[in-house]
Design a protein around this nucleic acid. Structure first.
Length: 711
DNA sequence: ACTCTTCCA
């Protein structure tokens, strides 16, 4: 029975899938009716991946490893797990797994697939991410999870026996956990030939991926136990949705890219036909600023058409000239909108709560335009491992990721991509591909995970991308000095195994274990929870002075860690009030996360048999006033030192526990240094106290820091 | 040498 959209009712709409699949929603958003289901079926069949259904199932049947080269928009992520299930790979209690590098993608894809299958999320289709397990072991057949979660699962079940097929999605992103996972899966495959792997990857990476899963001929004959099963990886290419994306470059480099983003968004909004806008920026601060600026400008120009703001806006819009190299710029059929209420500006970054992130995926109301300002993939951060301190430098993205981003504009129809750099910059300055994370970052966590899985010969491990030997040795040194590894580079018992069990950076894990012995675990898990989120303070654009003053209310002479404790205590005493947070420049969302993570850590601690004990009695309540006195006399070094010593006694166990984890970062103020330069005790590496620290103006003689400045 | 960065367990 056919149904048609009636004019005057809300139009049915197409939703863009995270991976390019398209979901059909009826106006009533009901998918239980036969009509809704049939439409979903039809939509599924229209995806490019659909005509490869038989081929994919055949390859998976006959090859241990299948590499799917899928352009964005092919629908592989949502469809392949369903094909596998339909073909019987989830029968007999087996589970089909599909990993993603990001939590948000896991949630989005899982709910999409559940919807397509017409089942309740958490039953036949479920997902697992940290803090959230929406699966039912008795009935879940398709399980989406982050690759980090799958790595954790290997600690309990090293051969991942419950899975029949594991699809590693977005493998071309080459995140550390994806790379480690691939290395381990290759090992598992030798023991479990019946396990099928599907690696989904972008074009450029497919060859090296295939080479990695190639087994040598000699071994192959020994290991193939299943007749008709090839250990040679198969490669299948699925084209994406072929919509054109027009690319524009700025004619001249922009100086202030946040401002350039604002102008560009507003001019797109003014000149282009309906369609949503996706913006990539580096980080939370820039995103918040851009969201605010766009909203302000839009409001100002809508409400007050003759105001000075309007003129300012027009000026800024005119500053950007675009060039479009290969296509002719279409200038006709532009409709002119009035901005104001028709623009919905939404930020997107991990620090947001789930409900805030969900807004991004909710359908755009008719007649409105959604602008999503998002992090990551935006301008990838580069981690340089210099001695024991992790340094992050913002580096330009690669051409590959620039192309991938442009592809996002062409999912459901032709799109446009405005690049805020010149064409020349793209051609000459940007590298073709990013460097795998494995080759540029801190390997401490990664090494300990492998050790915990019983991989003793870390240096001989078969990596998809070999890490730098120096970085590896550095990681082993740190773990050895933490007492996690013994002379033979084996995990120590119990400390090593316990540290591996705690889902945190090993230095933080060690801090937690030490606090157990010192009797201040209660305080330390609070500190650990706060250290694992971005920042507990609100972003301070334009209100730096107020923020600094607010910080002083909590600042402890002992430094940031004890300051965190004061904030946490105040938050609890306020009854977890959002108003309290607002008054004190504390980020309410961040504090809610802290409560969550802290609870998780408390459970981990109890499981490890630790005792949650507080050292409340040891601490004095008046650290705040103490700090203020100290500031007033900050020109007298002797007073500094005396006070520091005195304050050390106030919460010596907390400080001891922190030190037990972070001693490798201990630094000493350089004598005669007038700019506050420190050098690490171990490596004599230059360091500075970060200006956001309460100790920034303090300049204590010794500092134990989690993040030191870069040189 | 008065400022910030993403993701994941």
């Amino acid at each position: 029975m056919a149904q048609f959209w009636k004019p005057g009712t809300e139009k049915p709409r197409l939703l863009e899938d995270e991976e390019g699949g398209v979901l059909f929603l009826s106006a009533a958003a009901s998918t239980s009716s036969g009509y809704g289901y049939a439409s979903i079926e039809k939509q599924r069949q229209r995806l490019p991946v659909h005509k490869y259904r038989t081929a994919i199932l055949y390859l998976v049947e006959t090859h241990a490893t299948t590499i799917i080269v899928g352009e964005t928009g092919s629908g592989k992520t949502t469809q392949i797990p369903q094909y596998l299930k339909e073909a019987g790979w989830a029968e007999g209690g087996r589970v089909i797994a599909c990993t993603q590098p990001r939590r948000l993608a896991v949630q989005a894809v899982a709910s999409r697939v559940a919807e397509e299958m017409g089942v309740k999320l958490g039953e036949e289709v479920g997902y697992t991410i940290r803090f959230e397990d929406l699966t039912n072991p008795a009935v879940t057949m398709i399980k989406f999870l982050t690759d980090g979660v799958l790595l954790r699962e290997m600690m309990d079940d090293p051969l991942l026996t419950k899975y029949s097929v594991i699809m590693v999605d977005e493998a071309h992103e080459r995140s550390i956990s994806t790379d480690v996972l691939l290395g381990l899966l290759k090992k598992i495959q030798k023991r479990r030939p019946e396990l099928r792997l599907i690696i989904s990857s972008a074009t450029i990476e497919a060859k090296s991926m295939s080479a990695f899963f190639q087994t040598s001929k000699r071994r192959q004959s020994l290991e193939t136990r299943e007749p008709g099963l090839s250990m040679e990886p198969a490669i299948l290419s699925v084209e994406g949705r072929g919509y054109n994306v027009q690319i524009y470059y700025v004619e001249e480099a922009v100086s202030d890219y946040v401002r350039a983003v604002v102008s560009t968004v507003l001019s797109i909004h003014d000149e282009e036909p309906p369609g949503d806008i996706l913006v990539f920026l580096t980080g939370q601060d820039d995103i918040d600023a851009a969201v605010q600026l766009i909203s302000e400008e839009a409001r100002a120009s809508g409400k007050n058409s003759s105001g000075a703001k309007d003129i300012a806006l027009l000026c800024s819009l005119q500053q950007i000239a675009w060039t479009c190299p290969k296509t002719v710029r279409s200038s006709t059929s532009l409709c002119t909108n009035i901005y104001i209420a028709w623009l919905i500006v939404l930020p997107l970054y991990s620090g947001l709560s789930r409900s805030e992130q969900d807004l991004v995926f909710s359908p755009t109301p008719r007649g409105k335009r959604k602008v999503v300002i998002s992090t990551n993939i935006a301008e990838t951060s580069l981690t340089l491992e210099i001695s024991d301190i992790e340094n992050l430098v913002v580096a330009p993205i690669s051409k590959a990721s620039a192309r991938q981003r442009a592809g996002r504009a062409g999912r459901v129809r032709p799109g446009k991509c405005y690049r805020l750099y010149t064409e020349e910059y793209f051609a000459k300055e940007m590298s073709d591909e990013g460097i795998p994370e494995m080759q540029r970052s801190n390997l401490v966590s990664c090494v300990i995970q492998l050790k915990a899985l019983g991989i003793d010969n870390i240096l001989g491990f078969d990596w998809p991308a070999s890490p730098a030997p120096e970085a590896m040795i550095r990681a082993l040194e740190v773990l050895y000095s933490l007492g996690v590894l013994d002379d033979d580079a084996k995990l120590t018992s119990p400390v090593g195994f316990q540290v591996a069990e705690i889902p945190l950076d090993p230095m933080i894990a060690k801090m937690i274990l030490s606090s157990n012995q010192l009797g201040c675990l209660d305080e330390i898990i609070t500190i650990a929870a706060i250290l694992s989120i971005q920042s507990i303070w609100v972003s301070a654009r334009g209100a730096q002075k107020e923020l600094d003053e607010a910080k002083l209310r909590f600042a402890a002479a002992e430094g940031d860690h004890v300051t965190f404790l004061n904030v946490y205590k105040g938050f609890l005493q306020s009854g977890k009030s959002s108003q309290w947070c607002h008054r004190n420049f504390v980020n309410y969302q961040a504090m809610k996360k802290v409560i969550d993570i802290r609870e998780q850590l408390r459970r981990v601690a109890l499981r490890l048999g630790l005792v949650i004990k507080s050292c409340e009695g040891d601490m004095q309540a008046n650290v705040v006033s103490c700090f203020v006195d100290f500031l007033d006399q900050r020109n007298d070094p002797q007073v500094h030192f005396n006070l520091l010593l005195q304050n050390m006694l106030l919460s010596s166990v907390v400080r001891k526990a922190v030190t037990a984890g972070f001693f490798a970062n201990a630094s000493r103020l350089e004598a005669y240094s007038h700019n506050g330069m420190y050098k690490t005790v171990r490596g004599s590496q230059e360091a500075y106290i970060h200006p956001s620290s309460v100790l920034f103006r303090f300049r204590p003689i010794f500092a134990i820091s989690v993040v030191l400045g870069r040189n």
